[in-house]
Simulated scan of single mutants.
Amino acid sequence: MRFFISMLFILKLGSVSGQSDAQQFLNSKSYLVLGLSEAVSETNRAGIWKLSPAIAVRYGLVVVDGYDERLDPMWSTRAAQIWYRHLYNQLSDSVLADIAMVEGPAYAQRVAYNAIAYRRWQNKLVRWKDEAETRTAINFDQWTYNEEPLLGPVYWEDLDTTIGGLDWNRIKAINPAITGDYLPAGASASIRLDSNIDEDIMERLWARAEVRDRDAGEELAQIRRRIENNIPDPSTHTRISYRVKSGDVLGAIAQRYRVSLSDLKRWNSLHSNMIRIGQDLVVYVPRGVEVATVTQEQAVENEGQVRSDEENRTEIQYRVKSGDTLWSIARNYPGISADDIMRWNGINENIQEGQMLLILVENTARP
């Protein structure tokens, strides 16, 4: 890895010599920059030369999440210069090469056999040249800094904490290729800095990135577990533990904390409404919601009821699908009526897609 960083540094030193050539190319083709800004609307083309990702990578630019060298005027001009040279060698005509920069080689080849279209493009290029003479030219002198090589994974803000004394806003201003927070693992980049990045600094940047990635992975795993278990967002709900007291019923607890009965059962892996004194229940209370006072009679109205002769049946959790009604669901289970489903779940006939329903079936009655 250290050898690779050293090679990156050597290659970037060699690229500095091409700055004056790139400036000369930009000055001679500034009208194309103007025309490209007017003519190209494809969202995948970026930078002053409106390079596509494929063209950019083909001619030596790095295009990854968090870092896109097409947005760096100097580096993208180096790539555009090589591309233009190839187009000119292919088409043997400067007008067609200009057209190919804007519309692509295939389109330029078609124009070569259409005199009217060729003349129209000549006029358009002349207009762009006239307009470009009134614009302020881009000068690469403002980007004349040491180009320090980096190899991901690197979090950009760690440059300041690792090296120290850096102005992050200035770093972003002189490094327009930085588009996000992070350089992915294995991706290479060059950053303009007043300080040097040696192998020791690179090792420390990788160590910081490893810690960040591990923390992010643990956070993502927690979010996945929360979603899988239908646990609310902790920024909007507070997790509390409620200990069941004598006389409590599950519906009263749910109404007291303004949560649904089905959610309360899911959070506590309950397959029925049976609870016992001293049992600890997890409740995710919406923030800013006042705890309600619910009478025993009100809770019983919404508490599912199971007869003693139904207690040995098999419990099924049924998720309501689009178009379901209690009657259509009941038809799937012999001997069960819509009234049974309403009684078991403490609901009326109104159900919603995604709602979980308790169904008690005989062991031989499953569909």
Rank of each mutant, 00 (worst) to 15 (best):
Q296H: 15
R208P: 00
W143N: 01
N230D: 14
V33Y: 08
V111A: 03
E219N: 07
E69I: 00
N169A: 08
L71F: 13
R204N: 01
I116M: 06
S30W: 03
V64E: 12
I316P: 10
D160N: 14
M1H: 13
L87V: 07
D280V: 10
L326W: 05
E133R: 08
A100D: 04
A39M: 14
V244N: 07
I10F: 10
A97S: 08
A216T: 04
I347G: 00
V259P: 00
A189G: 03
N332F: 00
A207S: 11
I341A: 05
W121S: 01
G304T: 10
D324Q: 02
R307V: 04
G288F: 09
Y84V: 10
K172Q: 13
A330H: 11
A207P: 09
V62P: 00
I351V: 05
L61C: 08
L270T: 09
L358Q: 05
R214T: 09
Y59W: 11
A299R: 02
Y113G: 06
S6W: 05
D339G: 06
L150N: 02
E362Q: 13
R224C: 04
N89F: 01
V62E: 11
R127T: 06
Y107F: 15
S241A: 10
L91D: 02
T77Q: 04
A39H: 09
Q81D: 07
A106R: 13
H86V: 05
G66W: 00
A207H: 12
W75C: 01
R331H: 13
F25I: 12
G164H: 02
S235K: 14
A216M: 09
A54I: 06
A54K: 07
Y113F: 06
M7K: 15
